[in-house]
Design a binder for these strands. Sequence first.
RNA 1: GCCUGGGUAGCUCAGUCGGUAGAGCAACGCACUCGUAAUGCGUAGGUCAGGAGUUCGAUUCUCCUCCCAGGCUCCA
Length: 662
Amino acid sequence: MAAVTVRLPDGSTKEFDERVTAFQLAESIGPRLAKAAVAATVDGVEVDLGARLPDGAEVTVVTSDSEAGRNVLRHSTAHVLAQAVLRLWPGAHFAIGPVIEDGFYYDFELPGGAHFSDDDLERIEATMREIMAEDQPFVRHEHTIDEGLALFEGQPFKREIIEAVGAGQDEVDAAADGASAASVSTYWNSPAFSDLCRGPHVPATGRLGHFALMRVAGAYWRGDDKRQQLQRIYGTAWESDKALAGHLHRLEEAERRDHRRLGAELDLFSFPEEIGSGLAVFHPRGGTIRRLMEEYSRQRHVAAGYEFVNTPHITKAELFETSGHLDWFAEGMFPPMELDGGHQYYLKPMNCPFHILIFKSRQRSYRELPIRHFEFGTVYRYELSGVVHGLTRVRGMTQDDAHIFCSRQQMAAELHSTMTFVLSLLRDFGLDDFFLELSTRPEDKAVGSVEDWDEATEALRTAALAMDLELVLDEGGGAFYGPKISVQARDAIGRTHQMSTIQLDFQLPQRFDMEYIGADNARHRPIMIHRALFGSVERFFAILLEHYAGALPTWLSPEQVRVLGVRDDHEEYAHKVADRLSAVGARVSVEPADEPLGARIRRAKLLKVPYILVVGDDDVAAGTVGVNRRGSELPVRGVEVVAFTDQLEREIAERRLPESAP
RNA sequence: GCCUGGGUAGCUCAGUCGGUAGAGCAACGCACUCGUAAUGCGUAGGUCAGGAGUUCGAUUCUCCUCCCAGGCUCCA
């Protein structure tokens, strides 16, 4: 047999006397690599370790500690999950079991309409460990469509996937499940179990084991809410117990930062049941933070040439008929109220039509453009009960909403300055890791000419590219009336959040017959840009809270300094210090000495107050304070009041951010 | 809206195989006057989410509604 040469990622080559498997290649390179190997790529295609390598192939060994390798582990673990469920519930149907971020899931339908309970997860996990102990091989087979259908007799979901392929439909989706136009592939583990799958898989189930089942949930078959609901089990799998523990720890960390938990602990906001789902009230501390966010935003908007407007919360139905909202957004709106002899009034879900009416209140000249109307506009949306979530998905929210009306010639410059403005504002709040997403024309529900869409999309793209940030394309993700750019921010623990949106709109100006008089004395239609930088104040609040784990920068903290006297006869001095700080605009409180100092310090720490000042005999005598700064190990004694006041004043004025994320 | 799991004191939770409930923290009172993350003792606090049904009797079983969590679908 002819010698075989394969090329490795570092550019080197290796020769063999015969066609070796990917695993043999790994072994020939080193035992550690062979041990870590879970799959390989040959000329860019992922294959099993057992695959024989063709001559001249470019081969990469995929190891379990890479993202690709973990995905192989997760996919294989998902198969074991399915096998365990079929072992425990004979006659169960299994649907799909893909890899997702940090884990996997598998969808099932249990016989007799049974459902998984939390206790079942433990049983399933135990059975999975048995299967792993059995070290069953993953053996790949290719089948024709008919063979596949026969093999999955009694498994309607598998057959549906295969049938879709046979009918020449849905090829792309089906390929992911192990089917291509000509054939389907399966992985055989034991006489009792094989699964439709594209692979690759680890060589045997003994290779797995660092996994956990997380939860059960319902999920629609094929994600379609018209179709039946299946039982989904979520799990996670990693290359080692250490990596698994790390993941579980990250989940705990995220839970610790959960804004709903922090909102209660820090006494910021609540959702009284008496008011209704998704409707928040902000307590004094939360209200202070909101006020500070809004005040700073207002200040920046004034400087950026926005004008402030105010509009009501309800309106006659006709306004939303004109805007088109009742055609395409009605299900997102609260039902109408009937008033004034049959007139229907709606709570507003968006502010745009109101701002348009302000534009239209008199004739406009090109000399006025661009006109930028800004409002903290409170809107109400009837979110389905299952989607309401903390402050991030609510039924009543306040948008930092503005609409820019400009000429086509001004559009590019406006987009550019808006983008610059957005990023600058977000950075001032301490978010600095961004990428942009460009959402283009939705195929099925777009209105307006393709030329308009193209022009608008290009204008957005140009503005986005000028920001020198990563730009991701969201094909077909735009609203029906225009394309949009959204700013995505990564927070302190690496999660991404959609923040600002900048949306171009040719439609509403037309629907409302907006116009201005140009230099040519003719009527022209303005372009409209919708933009919200926080998105909603509530949501931005939640993101900031989680980003800082509740320890907001001093300038945003509801209570910046708490002064504690060591004994109650230090209280007079404590108040003197507090007055000095209040005089420079700081938010300060003094707590009486009715508890031991340690307990009072603990309370202040739990509230994440940036500065705790302790004053005792020495301080009264010397005019100093003891400074216990949030995040620092040791307090600093004997700081001159003037020196502390000066540095605090500077820190607030500069809106300084915490030195390191907490 | 759909699926699963929940709702017991202000918070975190225990408990009742159907006989109306308990802890820790918090609150309140008294004592303690203290130098950097929990002082001690005491008191009060619950239509066991709400409603209906079954039952001699329901916080417990059944049904409905509301609210919450995690998903699905949707979305700022």
